[in-house]
Design a protein around this nucleic acid. Structure first.
Lengths: 110, 110
DNA sequence: TGTATTATCTTGCAATGCAAGATAGTTTAC
DNA sequence: GTAAACTATCTTGCATTGCAAGATAATACA
């Protein structure tokens, strides 16, 4: 899948997944592939910087969990501001997708 | 509309418009707004570099027309390779949009 | 001991939309 | 006739961001 198409949509994807429930980064990578039916993939080198951006914006909050066995995990949960941002980004995406679909469907029809 | 969302879609938009009929750059700016129902806008500073990219790729071909009155216009028409590229980009977009919609629609449903 | 797996993090590159400005001919208003 | 507005193309440089590649570290398994 083209790298450029993903631009500006990863924050929307992350907020959607975190609105469902608390998750940690490594888990999100596989959740994106699963939720999208294998159509979308995001690498961890992409993911972590986006998580930091969302945290700086106050849209998500981290929480470390160190199990007795295993590598420590950093769980993120969405904030109220994050839910509002999610709504905003989802609406923006739908508006954009509708505009592009309108162009694709027209195909010289009028 | 977010700048980042447009990334990687402008070539698709241009090829779609040029598959309809021959057009010149300045005309395309308003055609995009019209075809998208006012949802999408592309500036001329964006447009021309994309046209050059498509020309270099052999997807469109230019033709100058100098009317007796008025500023010369550079018309572009799509090539056979351009039509194939259009099909490819449209399919890629639909796959991507379907993946994202699947995520948005799931919303923790399963 | 060595390899694989889980998990987080950083550096630097590549791609590209766009603001801003340049150029130039045409049309309209005063 | 001349100033302003419009049509039309083109260029420079910046900001954003996905990602490859690599680093680090703990655990599991052969």
């Amino acid at each position: 899948m083209s790298r450029e198409l993903k631009r500006g949509t990863i924050e929307l994807v992350l907020l959607t997944l975190l609105a469902d429930r608390e998750r940690y980064g490594y888990e999100i990578v596989s959740a994106i592939a699963e939720w999208s039916g294998g159509r979308l993939e995001v690498r961890d080198g992409t993911l972590y910087p986006v998580l930091y951006r969302l945290e700086e914006g106050g849209f998500i909050e981290p929480r470390w969990e160190t199990p007795e066995r295993g590598v420590p995990r950093k769980y993120y949960r969405i904030t109220e501001a994050g839910k509002a941002e999610l709504d905003r980004l989802a609406a923006e995406w739908r508006e954009f997708a509708a505009g592009l679909e309108a162009i694709l469907d027209r195909k010289g029809g009028a």
